[in-house]
Structures are given as C-alpha cells and as structure tokens.
Design a protein around this nucleic acid. Structure first.
Lengths: 411, 411
DNA sequence: CCTATTTTGTTTAGCGTCGGCACAAAGTGA
DNA sequence: TCACTTTGTGCCGACGCTAAACAAAATAGG
C-alpha cells in the first residue's frame, strides 16, 4: 500500500506542540508558530505542512487584505474544515448528551437526550454512544477517539465510578470498560480500522481542561476550578496544561473541606462539609424555599440569585453560602496556591451576585490572600464538560499526531 | 584556553536524566542506565563517558569478583570521589548549620553553629555562609551552587520569607537576595569563575525533595510530606520528582486546615487550625506538662512519647494529637491524592507511638482511604533539610550537566 | 511609479544525536 | 574447552533540527 502523505525531513518532534498551539488558538500564523515553538521558520513551515498533510489544519494562502502591519502578510493557520472530530459524551442527573468536537474545541454537532438514568450504566452509555454514532454517520467525519464525562470521581487505573452520587449507578461501576464496550459495539472505528480509544473523566475535571484550553482558564499555569451543578461540590486542578488527578484519580475531592464548624452532618462522618453546605440544595434551603420538582436545583438557585436577590432571605442565604464557599476556597488556596480560580454551576452565580464579598473572604482567610490575591472568574464555555470530554480523546493526537493519523511509514 | 574534555558525538540529550539516575542511586551500572533511559548500549556508554569526563561520576572497570549472574559483568558507576559539591545551609530556631553535599546526597562535611537568630537576616546568613566557605576551603572541592533552607514560606519569584515564625526576622525579609549577597561577598566561585548560583527554599519543602531522592520517598510519584519541628506545621508535595510550590511558592501551607471545630484561636483569624492544634507545643500542653527551657519543644515531645508513654495523660494527649493530625492528613489526601505520605518532626514520633490509630483516622476520614489506603511512613534521612537545600543547588546540574561544568565547546 | 524596508515563506546544506548492527570482551555452565 | 549469555564499543545512517541564502509580498517614502 503506497503512502499518500508526503514524507518530510523536518518537524516531527515539534508536531505535537504545534498542534496544541493551533488547538488552543495561540498560533494563528506560521510566524507565531515560529516564535512560540522557538524554532526556525524552516521548521515551522515544515510542521505546518505536515499537519496540513495529516488533514488537521489548513494553511490559508489567500491574501488577507490590508492588515496595517508592515512586511509580508502571513498565511493564516486554521483548523481544517471537515477534519477529524472526537466523540464527546456526558451523563448527568437528568439524562445524557452526545456531541462531536473538532480541533479547537468547536462543537460540530450536538444531540441531547433525556431519561431517568437507570441503575445499569450499560443502558445509558449505550444510548449516548448510539446518539454519538448517529452524529458521526451524519457528519461523515473521521473520529479520533471518544470521551465521557460523568458526575463521579473516576478511580485510576481501573476507570471505575466511585461515587456516582446523583445517578442511580452502583458505586464502583466499571464505567470506562462499559463505555469502551459500547464504543466497540457501535462500530465506531478510527483511521486505523480499530475501535477508537475511549476515555472517562469526572465532569468537573474535564470541564477544567476545556476552560483551560478554550475558555476562561487560558494562560493560567495553576488553574483551580470549583463547581456545583446539582448535589455536592466538585473541584479540579490543571497544572501546566495537564489535569492533576492524583495518584489514583481521586485528587480534588474538595467536598469534604470543613466550612461550617457546627454544620449539618455529612455522609463522610464529619459535619459542615462543603459538599452539604455549599451546593444548590443547601442554598435553596437556606433561602427558605422548598426544592421545586419542575426545575433543577441549579436553575432554581440561579433564578433566586438573578431575579429575587431583593428578597432579604435570599440575600442572606447568598451571603451565608458565599462565606462558606470562600472559606473552602481559602483552604484550597493555602494548599494549592493557584494563580487563577474558576467557578462553575451555582458558584458562578454566587460570584456574579456579590463578587466583592467572595473575594474578600478568600483573601482574608487564605494566609497569603493579602499579598496579591487570586483572580476569581466564572467559567466561560457553554458545554465545558462536553468539550472537556473531547479533550481527553484529543489528547493522544495532541501528544503525537503521527501515532494515530500518520499510518506506517512507506516501505 | 584549550578544552581538555573530549568532545563526544553522542549522549548529550540524555546526560541530565542519566546523572539523575546515578544521583538517586537508581543506576549502578551502564546496563541499568541503558534500561532506565530506554536508549541503546552505545548511547549509555557515551553518556557515562561524558559524565566521567565532567568529573561527576566514576566508571569502575576493575573486575568485581564472582557476581553469580551469567554474562559479562558490568562496570560499576559511582559518584566521583572528590567531585563537585553543593553548599547547603539551614537556619532554624536555635541557630544554623552549614554543610557540603556531594552528588548522591552524601554529606561531605558539616559545621553546626548555635546562636540566637537576630532580627537582621544578614548576620546569621553571613555566619552560615562563612562557615560553608571554610568547609569548602578545607575540602578543596569545586562548588556547583548554594542552597538555603529556612523555616518560613518563601514567596516566588522574589525569594522573600513571608512568615519566619520562630525566627526574629521581619516578615517579607528578602532572604534570597541577602543569601546571594553573602555568597558573593564570601567569594564562593563556581567553575566558571562567577559566584555560584544560590537558592532558598522552605525547610519542609526541601526536606521533601531530599527524602524523595535519597530517603523514604524514593519511587513515589505524588509524595506528601507533613512535619512539625518547633511551632506550626509545614507541608510539601513532590510531583513527578519536582517540588510543587504553587504559582507563587506558597502551596502546601497546610497549617490552617481546620482539625478541631471548637479549637483554640489561630493568628489567621480562624480557630482549631492544624498549626496550633498539632505542633509540639500543643502536644506538650495537652499532656499537662509545661514547656521546659532546657530542651527544645520537639525533644520534649519526642521524649514524652518514647519514655513516658505509660503515663495515661501522655497517651491521651498522643491520641488527641494523632486524631487531629489524621483529620488534617485526610483533608490533604482528599485534595491531593498522594501515593505516599511521610511524616517528620513530632509527627513521625506520633506515628511511631501508634501507627495503627493514625492510619485508621486517615483511612476513615479520607473519602477514598478505604479503597486502598495511603502508605504512611517516617522520614528516613538525618539531615533532610540540609540535603534538600543542596538539592536545590544541584538541580541545574541535574537538568543540564554541560551548562555549568561543560565550559564552551572547543574552537 | 519606483525603490527601499520589513516581514514571511522556501530551499539547500550541514550538523548533532540517536538507533541499528556487527563485533569484541568477559564472565558462567556443561 | 566450547557454547551461551550479557556487556562494552566502533561504524554507519536516519532523523530532526539550525543556519544561511534567496524569494515573495506587503508597506513606507520619495
């Protein structure tokens, strides 16, 4: 079998870093690539050509009109239209979502699905994978891998869901194995003809990855993300562009930091944990409301903060929750010393409601908050867990574009 | 000036990793080097030759006698006798220490010094640097750098001591700058003729580095160290062989985790912090003793645990402190998910006193302690802060042996 | 309009680092 | 003594880059 791809002499080692730069939108032109990679123009050109030959990016050689800058205008580098995609899947309390995500974190297609998540992971994972397979068929794109985000800690290296709290799943369900099975059963094949590699991660973890690469976390070296979507509180840390999941995938289980000395008991045996004191349920109850069955807890909490903030009970509840969240964040700042913190779910609405109060609590309670306090921002991406699940699948390609897409060298 | 060193064709890129392997005792022969580096025997041989030419290691070609194994016996790789050293310095509550530390973490020479640490860092740092300079003169060795361990958080990138708690120093003292000044003033020059580079780190941080490379932390991927020497509690995290100091050097300030809901007030504004509930003073007081002026708090606590553990009051105090420490460690396990924990200072003696109790508390309070609990061990090195300070100075050499010791290539 | 300048892209030559391979060396085991 | 196993070394070539010269495409200024 003859090799179509032109074999080039240069630019294989720098291929991964270069692709990452395009992926995260930090390399719009070859000139930028040259500077960012610290290589010569010759190498950057070869790298770009190689990535184009792999079908990952497109070099746009058309003139761009007057740019205002002196010198020869650069050719623009862009994600290849119609290029490969990753299959992204997410399971949450109310059902699932499937999507195709291209290079650059672009959502190519989405398929929502509602259902009560049954006790058997194979059911809902089968459904979400089938939805993804249908999207793939319709798009005709090449698939590089599949990623799944679940609202549970995922233990490594087995890939089991240890605490799928608001799913009906059993603790310790072998999610990665089941997901891989469904992917293989659905016949989702990669460029090499084998079933695509599959990955599973905690939803907040992968969301943090997405925010770091395409959202509000760009450029942060030590990014801490804390979020609460339904019940409990999740955390994630991105260190130098890589997710820090600890030695067995269980790092950043931030839900059991003590934030209310005489708080309510937690299932962990302690009392006053972040998990039960600063999630949407805690807020709705603190505001003196009863959880309504028609909207989710998160939506109810968001609407209270946005539309009924004039109500003294709501405002008081917000203050209480902001103080609790601030104490938890301060503890994390003392341990992790991040250079940026992103908040998601209810917490981003709490930040919106009274940013100054939250910043003050964190600065006051973290020993070093005074000496240059940490920026607190809201998450910026709409479907950061989906995009993040896709990041897991894209990662091997970003690390070595030739391994999956290069085929074997010509004989 | 002619270049003595033979210029070789191979083994420049792998030089650093190879030196690190010898440094940490993981490469006793060239055959091991070949396997560990994943290179060919040819490259490993060239690397070893280059390191020998730099005066860092020695290849022992003498026959080693019957080894029992089949095949040609390997030549042994060892740290070069009389090779370069790093100057290590430590300032603590009762004075200072200086030492020379060779490759492999070997203490070549030590000089203790007692004094009440004055408010002016320049005094004590001048004294410790002079002691180190004297050791260097006496040994006649080449110096690659100088490292200093201080009992305070060190802010990056300025190198200021933020909370030199039990020293008389002012908060924010520019320790790195002063230390570098003293080094230059003492005329401690490197192979290039310039004053050697100088480094400053928190004592627990650098101790963790030393334990990871030469002590009880060897082989751990995510090593957490918690220690308490005099007042307060310090922490450190070594991730993949590198110290995790956070974005501004202030990570692992673990002293303000809440471990006693209704505990005593802490200077941070909260109450029941690890810092005031689990340090030597807290233990001595919990045991109903008064801090004696003749021995240090740490020694007093250690002796109580070793020699008066039969006393119910001592035992009860130990249990209380073990429980507090365990709750703090559990919180850290939930956030960091380390694969090993080392304890130093008073905490190692608490571990010795009742290892099962401490393990049980950590396993019970950390959400994932049950599913494979974390190994808890005592620190193993005698002067781990000194050796760790030297590690800071050795690090550039380990990263690129040619940069400092290679000189310029022959013309 | 023409030329100088600036910046980007491409071609060619060459070099440094490593793998592959053949061979030599030094031990063990029958 | 002769296989066999493992380690050390020399030679060649592949790979991935830099360096440097040249070409191209825009702006700036006369």
């Amino acid at each position: 079998m003859t090799q179509i791809r032109t074999r080039l002499e240069r630019g294989r080692g720098a291929l991964g870093p270069a692709l990452s730069l395009v992926h995260t939108g930090r390399a719009a032109t070859r000139a930028v690539l040259t500077a960012e990679l610290g290589v010569t123009r010759a190498t950057a050109g070869a790298v770009a050509a190689e990535l184009e030959a792999l079908g990952l990016i497109r070099v746009d050689t058309r003139p761009t009109g007057p740019s205002g800058a002196q010198g020869r205008p650069s050719h623009r580098l862009a994600v290849a239209p119609g290029g490969p995609v990753a299959l992204a899947a997410q399971v949450h309390a109310d059902g699932f979502r499937a999507a195709l995500v291209g290079l650059g974190g672009e959502l190519v297609a989405t398929a929502p699905g509602c259902m009560t998540v049954p006790a058997d992971p194979a059911h809902v994972l089968g459904a979400v994978v089938d939805a993804g397979a249908e999207l793939l068929r319709a798009s005709g794109r090449v698939c590089v891998g599949a990623g799944l985000a679940v609202p549970s800690a995922v233990a490594e290296p087995d890939g089991t869901a240890l605490n799928p709290l608001h799913l009906a799943w059993p603790a310790g369900a072998p999610v990665r194995e089941v997901f891989a099975d469904r992917i293989a059963a659905a016949g989702i094949l990669g460029p090499d003809g084998d079933p695509v590699p599959s990955f599973v991660g905690n939803d907040v973890n992968v969301a943090a990855l997405a925010e770091h690469r395409h959202g509000a976390g760009q450029g942060a070296q030590h990014l801490l993300v804390v979020a609460s979507g339904h019940r409990g509180v999740g955390g994630a840390l991105v260190l130098d562009g890589r997710l820090h999941t600890g030695s067995s995938g269980l790092a950043l289980e931030v839900g059991h930091l003590t934030v209310e000395p005489d708080g309510r008991p937690c299932h962990c045996g302690s009392r006053g944990c972040l998990d039960v004191e600063a999630d949407p349920l805690a807020f709705v109850e603190a505001a003196g409301r009863t959880p309504g069955p028609e909207v989710s807890l998160l939506e109810q909490g968001r609407d209270l903060l946005r539309e009924e903030y004039g109500d003294p009970a709501v405002r008081e509840a917000a203050h209480v929750l902001i103080d609790r969240l601030g104490r938890g964040l301060a503890g994390l700042v003392n341990v992790l010393n991040p250079d940026r913190i992103l908040l998601g779910g209810l917490h981003r609405h709490l930040l919106d409601a009274d940013p100054e109060r939250l910043r003050a609590v964190v600065a006051d309670r973290s020993l070093w908050g005074r000496s240059g306090s940490v920026p607190l921002l809201a998450c910026a991406l709409d479907h950061n867990s989906l995009v993040g699940a896709a990041e897991l699948a894209w990662q091997p390609v970003l690390d070595d574009p030739l391994a999956l897409l290069g085929g074997q060298p010509a004989v």
